[in-house]
């Protein structure tokens, strides 16, 4: 009997609770909508802000739609197929994915140490009056268009790489990596610098009061406290580098072959972005090639989405931690 009661109770309270929750949600929503209606600025402002979601979804839908033919016909070959040859009708994306990855990894191997060191130097060591000017110059470095980076790469870096390593041409993976390193360093400096500057003053003062040198303070206090921000800056630098198009394609050589040995960065490579930019012009709308290029676009979109979401999560968690500590 008592068992029966509890069971009845259980059955009746569950939907009841659910109902209350729904009602509460509904009430919250109506209050929200009312508050927007009461303000002539509210509704248009809300629509503009939500446009970011709508645009992102539209982008996903249209890229998937145009790429669907390639997914259906090629399937996994678009990602793991080892031959990308338009004339032979082979659309294996592996050489392109590999090209993108190797160029970006070498670039980050250069950009991360330089970027992190610079951000520490600017926000911890550099005298105050010099901080704004130096930061401004690095910001200007970030604003230089990629086509100009490509131009500089061809004119200035590629010939030097060629003569340094005795190559017949300087348009190889390493040249692209150097250009990409210059392009992604400002992103790393900017984001990492911001988080380093956000470390509470009290932390530093406590360390210095205990007799630590400034380097010990930076190593023991500032860096651990801002490590998620630095991680986020690296993720964003990665995102910027993997999506870079024009600068890379102008200096990377554009040969869709995985170098042999694979770590040979002195051979030309072809990246995902370069393939899209170079081939979209020739691909007939609706052809398999056209669709395959959108497939590559989707791969890039997904990589960028993952990288940005990860950076977002890392930063949000960091903020919550600092708020909790402070």
């Amino acid at each position: 009997m008592s068992d029966m009661d509890t069971l009845n109770c259980h059955i009746s309270t569950q939907p009841h609770k659910f109902g209350i929750k729904m009602l509460k949600k509904l009430k919250e929503t109506t209050i929200f909508l009312k508050s927007l209606r009461a303000e002539p600025l509210g509704a248009p402002a809300f629509i503009c802000a939500s446009s970011a979601i709508i645009l992102l979804l539209l982008m996903l839908i249209f890229i998937v739609r145009e790429g669907s033919q390639a997914f259906l016909n090629l399937g996994a070959e678009l990602i793991i197929g080892a031959v990308w040859d338009t004339n032979a009708g082979r659309y294996g994306g592996l050489p392109l994915i590999y090209g993108s990855i190797i160029v970006v990894f070498v670039a980050l191997a250069i950009a991360i140490p330089i970027g992190v060191a610079s951000s520490i130097f600017i926000s911890e060591i550099l005298p105050h009056p010099l901080r704004d000017p130096i930061k401004s110059i690095i910001e200007l470095l970030a604003s230089i268009p990629s086509v100009i980076y490509g131009f500089i790469g061809l004119l200035f870096i590629a010939p030097r790489i060629a003569s340094l390593f005795g190559l017949s041409t300087g348009t190889v993976a390493l040249t692209a990596s150097i250009i990409l390193a210059i392009m992604s360093t400002p992103t790393i400096v900017g984001v990492a610098g911001e988080t380093i500057a956000a470390v509470p003053k009290e932390y530093r003062e406590a360390a210095l009061a205990l007799g630590a040198t400034r380097w010990q303070m930076i190593k023991g206090i500032v860096l651990p406290a801002s490590k998620s921000g630095i991680l986020a800056s690296i993720l964003l630098g990665f995102g910027r580098a993997i999506g870079e198009t024009v600068a890379v394609l102008m200096v990377a050589g554009n040969t869709a072959i995985i170098p042999s040995p694979p770590w040979n960065i002195l051979s030309p490579v072809y990246t995902l972005t370069a393939a899209i930019a170079m081939q979209m012009g020739e691909a007939a709308v609706g052809s398999l090639e056209y669709s395959a290029l959108f497939g590559l676009g989707l791969i890039l979109f997904i990589i960028a989405f993952i990288v940005n979401t990860l950076a977002d999560v890392v930063v949000t968690r960091e903020k919550a931690k600092i708020r909790g500590a402070g």
Partner: peptide, 13 residues
């Protein structure tokens, strides 16, 4: 995420 979409993908869209 919109800020992070590669420009070539924005061009495709």
């Amino acid at each position: 995420n919109l800020a992070g979409v590669p420009s070539i993908v924005i061009g495709l869209f």
